[in-house]
């Protein structure tokens, strides 16, 4: 009986593995963006109202489609709901907690980062060398997996505190000094 049960368990596990389609890259990245909110702390000035939504902004062409919207739907961080905003121009960015900078903006990353200055916004992008260029978190594709690369100094400079847990699963980089 115990043997039969074990066999059944193995079989069903195999079926599940087969049936679950491998999540698309951006699907994963959308979940990661949502998850960041839980491992990052912003200075209190960024959210004076405890019910103020956590705003995830997307700058440039949006590769995430509806994945992000689906991910955050109904979710809350404490009392705070999530809100997705899509920006065309830098100037559009007002109150924002997490900003995903699309590859389309790779050319002007330095300009954008400079513009954001020390505003407490977690900057995330999957553009090449984003972290080394002063971005805070960069998605790196590694054998079908998505790894994180974090520029801790940049975050500290913007007064954004990244949880050590998050740091554990990421690669820490620095902005090269001239």
């Amino acid at each position: 009986m115990a043997l039969l049960k074990a066999a059944f368990t193995v079989l069903t596990s195999a079926l599940l593995l087969v049936q679950t389609p491998r999540a698309s890259e951006y699907q994963v990245k959308a979940v990661f963006l949502f998850n960041f909110a839980q491992f990052v702390e912003w200075p209190a000035v960024a959210a004076p109202d405890p019910q103020m939504p956590v705003i995830i902004g997307i700058l440039g062409e949006d590769p995430l489609g509806t994945f992000l919207d689906e991910t955050v739907r109904g979710e809350r961080l404490g009392l705070r709901p999530f809100e997705i905003r899509r920006y065309r121009e830098l100037t559009d960015i007002t109150a924002c907690n997490i900003l995903f900078i699309s590859r389309s903006e790779s050319e002007r990353v330095a300009e954008i980062l400079a513009a954001l200055g020390k505003r407490p916004i977690l900057t995330v992008s999957d553009g090449d060398d984003f972290a080394k260029r002063g971005g805070m978190i960069q998605f790196v594709n590694d054998k079908n997996r998505i790894r994180l690369r974090i520029n801790l100094e940049a975050a500290q400079a913007a007064n954004v505190t990244i949880s050590s847990k998050l740091l554990r699963v990421a690669e820490i980089v620095r902005t090269p000094r001239p």
Partner: peptide, 14 residues
């Protein structure tokens, strides 16, 4: 508690 980040960011090694 320790595995939150590993799960959140699907880090198998961790």
């Amino acid at each position: 508690a320790n595995s939150t980040a590993a799960l959140a960011f699907a880090n198998e090694a961790d």
